[in-house]
Each structure stands twice: as C-alpha cells, then as structure tokens.
Design a protein around this nucleic acid. Sequence first.
DNA 1: ATAGTTCTGTTGAATTTTCAACAAAATGGA
DNA 2: TCCATTTTGTTGAAAATTCAACAGAACTAT
Lengths: 231, 231
Amino acid sequence: MKKYLEIFKRCPLFSGIDEADLETMLTCLGAKVAVFDKRYTILPEGSPGKYVGIVLSGSVCIEQLDIYGNRSILSMVMPSQIFAEAFACAGVASIPVSVVANEESEIMFINIERILNTCSNNCPFHNALIRNLMHDLAEKTLMFHRKIDIISKRTTREKLLTYLNYESKSQGRMSFDIPFDRQGLADYLEVDRSGLSLEISKLRKEGILESRKNHFTLLQSTTTSSTGGLK
Amino acid sequence: MKKYLEIFKRCPLFSGIDEADLETMLTCLGAKVAVFDKRYTILPEGSPGKYVGIVLSGSVCIEQLDIYGNRSILSMVMPSQIFAEAFACAGVASIPVSVVANEESEIMFINIERILNTCSNNCPFHNALIRNLMHDLAEKTLMFHRKIDIISKRTTREKLLTYLNYESKSQGRMSFDIPFDRQGLADYLEVDRSGLSLEISKLRKEGILESRKNHFTLLQSTTTSSTGGLK
DNA sequence: ATAGTTCTGTTGAATTTTCAACAAAATGGA
DNA sequence: TCCATTTTGTTGAAAATTCAACAGAACTAT
C-alpha cells in the first residue's frame, strides 16, 4: 500500500486522516485492489451499489448505454478520485450506470458498510470518513450542475464552448488537454460525433480556438456565459 | 414550530431524530423561518452558500438563467425537502443557481456552520445530521443522474416520455400530476415550449398518452428505456 | 516497415428543433 | 359577469442536429 501514498493523500475520502494511520485503517475497512484492462467493464449497470471505488492509476469512465447502444458519458474519474460512492451511500440495489476502464487501471474497493458502521475495534476514523463522504458528495453535486449547464445549451457549438470554458477555468490556462477523444467528447456533450467534428472545424476557421487531438487552446476570452458569446 | 411537526418528520435532514428533541435542536441550530410571495427570488444566483433551506409549505424552483434570459430548471423542491445543501456543504462562495418561490412558501433556514461544527452545548445530534446530509446528498446525486438521463435524449419526444416514465414510476401509477406548467416543463426538459406542446398533441393523437393541464396519463407501458419505445 | 484497425473530418439528405407570431383557452380580479 | 392578463396550442420558415457513408490520418501489432 505504501506505493499509493501520494494517491491516498490527495483522495477526498481520506482527507485529514493521518498518513501513519492509513494502512491500519485500510486493513480495518477491508480495502481490496484489482487491476483492469483497457475497456474492461469494472461495474456493469445493475451491479449492487455496495462498493466505493478509488482510482489508483489509469482512469475510468462512468457511462450509460441506451436501448439503441448510444453511449452517454457522465464523467471521467482520474487517479485519487472516487466513484460509485453515491450509489453506495444511498444504498441502491442496482446501479444505473456502468463503470468502464478507460485504460489499464488499478482500482481499490471498499465496502460502504465498513465505512458507515462503526466497527468492533471502535476505530476513530469513521466519523471523519463520513464527513469526507459528505463533502465529496457535495462536490459531485456541483459537478453535475456543471454538466447540466453544459448539455442544457441548445447547440453543439454552445455546449462545446461552455465545456471548454469550464475546463480552461479549472485548469487555469487557455491551453489544455481534455480527457476525451472525439467520440468520448461527443458522448459527454450528448451530441453527434460528426456534428461535433464539424463544429470544431468551424471554430478553428473562425479563429476562436486551436485544437490538435485532445489538446485545445481558446483564443478569445469566450466567456460564453457572460460576455455575450459569439452569436 | 409545533405546527411543522409533520414536515420535520418527513424531512431527510432530521430523520432518526427524536420528535421530543426537535425544538431544542432547532433553537440550538439557530433555525429561522421566513415567508415568500409567489415568484420572489429567495436566493439569487451569486448568494453565499451558507444556508440549508427547508421547504415548510409551498414549493421552490432551483433555476438558472443564461445570458439570453433562457431559464433552465434544475429541480422543484417540495415541502419537507431541503435545498442549497450541496453549496453549503461544499462551502462555495457564491451559488451558481437561483432559488425562486413557485408559490407562496414558508422556508426555514439553517446556517450550515451550526450543523457541521459541534456546538458549545455538546449537542449529541451533529453526527446524526451529518449522516443525514450525506444520505440526502447521495439521493440528490441520483436525482441528477435521472435528470441527465432525461435531457441527454436527442428528441423532445424522448425527453418527455423518459421524464413521464420516471414520474409515473416514482408516483406508482400511470395517471399523475407533474409539478410544472408547460413553460416549466419545457425549461426542465431543456426544450422549446412550442415544440413541447406540439409533441404532447402528437402523443395524444397517437393514443400514447392523455393530458389535461399538468395531469398526465400514460396509456401504454411505454418503457422508452426497455421495451423499445415507439420508433 | 507494413497491413489492418481505429479515429477523425467532410459531405449531403432527412429529421427535428428553434423561433416568431398569433389565436384560442384559461385564469384572476374588479 | 366581464375585462385584462397569462397560458397553451398551432403554424410555417429558418436553423441545427442527426444519420449514413466514405476517405484520409493516426495508431497497433506483427
């Protein structure tokens, strides 16, 4: 477990927990680690919501397939972030999404019961973990607010620019990578891939952005949401 | 406070708290009640995220206006439900939504600090409240999953049917009221109002549903999401 | 290096949405 | 009850999206 120390330090679930206590705590929580190949479905839709997942390396994709096979991406989860905690905390019988490895990934699982129920050892950290879960869930709610703000826009262009502005703001620069390929970005923005490619081309020709693969550069303070945003 | 007892009993924030302790607890938490007229903006966008709101009567609308004045409705909050708790728990400086009274409404506010920080009286209920908040936030996350599932559909018809199916399932009947008027429903589904009216007419003519004002009846097990859903 | 596979950008046609405008219906007060 | 206001349904035109198909680029594995 030593080798994941840097991950644990940044993990919202463990914030405020003393490094020295981590190992005993993880043992007490019955944490298990597993490795998954790229594209492996870690938790298929319908799985019981019993475990909180922690990405130790790689990345996973929270997605949903409709009856036609169209994929909707809810979020990407990067190292040190957690997933499926909402289903676990709400105690849902079967989760409404799939969790898929975006690349080879190491994942740690903790049974939520071990977190919520104070154990026989009277470990002192349960209350801290619950507070951390509460804070994390509040942040996740904000994340969904942003996602809804993005996909509630009526055109592909507006969705894309709103997304890129959020990404730019959160990374603190005008030039940044995004964690999606084209199809992935389309599935996150909930639009058609070819229409998205077309729109990116147009924006490039209009001098509003530059892009190369999954690297984007915004060329104007295109604050779609305050300056008036380019028609 | 006595007259709100039934509300408090059903409020997710207070679940598991003994009736007899409610009054002292609310005093200790510094809970304040205020009444707002229909259409009054209870918390404008940009307000500090300091308070958790509890709807005692009436209903409020969590909404967002874009630069063109288009309204997006995130959710309706009914009596005994709470709102703005995610902003409070995440400690955001300014909330990204407005909270508007949908009708004359009585609202109770509690400063989140009073909940999170154990007070000088060493009140025993802080841990219970934090657990309740955690659970509530997990449920809110599920609510947003449903909302995203709805608005990620590509056509107005699919959005509407997906929404009505959720509503039907959650109310446990095929005939039910929804908490929106036409414009409100359009703003929740993130579509054009006139297009929505048109689609409702079509569905009625096709014998898929009946509707009268905000009362809808689904005439087929239109499980848009499992049976195949009508073209 | 090469062959096969996957990803990305382009195009045109069909479908759907948005927008504006207006009439009919419903609502709320005086 | 009647008037004024708000809400809802309809329509046609313009704009945008989706869909299918394909070619070129990029990537993988041998």
